[in-house]
Amino acid sequence: MNDIILYTILILVSLGIAAAIILYVVSLKFKVKEDPRLPEVMDALPNTNCGGCGFPGCSAFATELVNADDLGPYHCPVGGNDVMKEVADILGMEVEEKDPFIAVVKCAGAIGVRKQFSEYDGAATCTIASDLYSGERGCSDGCVGLGECVDACDFDAMYMDEYTGLPVVVEDKCTACNACVKACPKDIIQLWPKGKKNKRIYVACVNEDKGGTARKNCSLACSGCAKCADECKYDAITVENNLAKIDYETCKLCGKCVVACDVRNIVADHFKQEQLDKLAERRDARLEKEKEARIAERQKAKAEAQAAKQSGEQKPLDEKLNDSAVPEKTEKEEVSTNQNPDVV
């Protein structure tokens, strides 16, 4: 009996030693050479595997970083500058600070704002619905409202607002990984600089229909009236295809365009209401003044024209227009859009 136990122990021990030797030899022989900095970089990265950097996962990104000559084109949106700095330190390289970005939803077409025409009843994903038809609401460019962006978010940084039916980005959680941007079939979501003190200004509309059509379908649509562009001193706003676009690199966040918009479609995040009110007041006052000036001008022109008519000449009117230069011209457009029944 004792012999059996002894033998058993002996056999097991010798088996264990033999296996250990084999493992040791094999591990030496087939050792994979790996850059020693790789695990360090891996540790520095957030390991969320979101793909926001453009690589299939953190380990692929780390491999790429280790082999890179210059860190310029690489950025981890989740970790931000801190992580990139850490990585640069590990690799002994320099890295430029990049402005943090955040996802913004460029559609204001909430329930009630856009007229609903039909009811979608297929598989509940935005892509399938938008492949099928132009949508259950009037504006065919607007948010479908089935939350594919929310599903795509790995960070729990989006949710669908019950009352508006639109997705909302949670600022603290959004890492600008681009997943929602890729998920949205209507290209409504865009990455935008987070801005100083979280202040940012963007147009919450992507509809390129003509003003009248757009407004008929959505009372908050951008009609491309260009009032905002006229207001902007820095030429940051362009109007193309009936849609205003803000260039975030030139935008100085003055907020003047925000109050210029008739339908308040330009969103100003984290601006103080008083500041905007003040801007609006100032603008109104200025408009009033200009209006008076214009009426006076018109009367003057009329009088002159009459005088000219009496003397048989008709030239001065054209000259007058040329003289009055840019601000006057925009004034005219503003008035004309205000009178447009489609807009009001």
Partner: peptide
Amino acid sequence: TLLTVAPS
């Protein structure tokens, strides 16, 4: 009543 739209 709104018309229902769904894929076939």
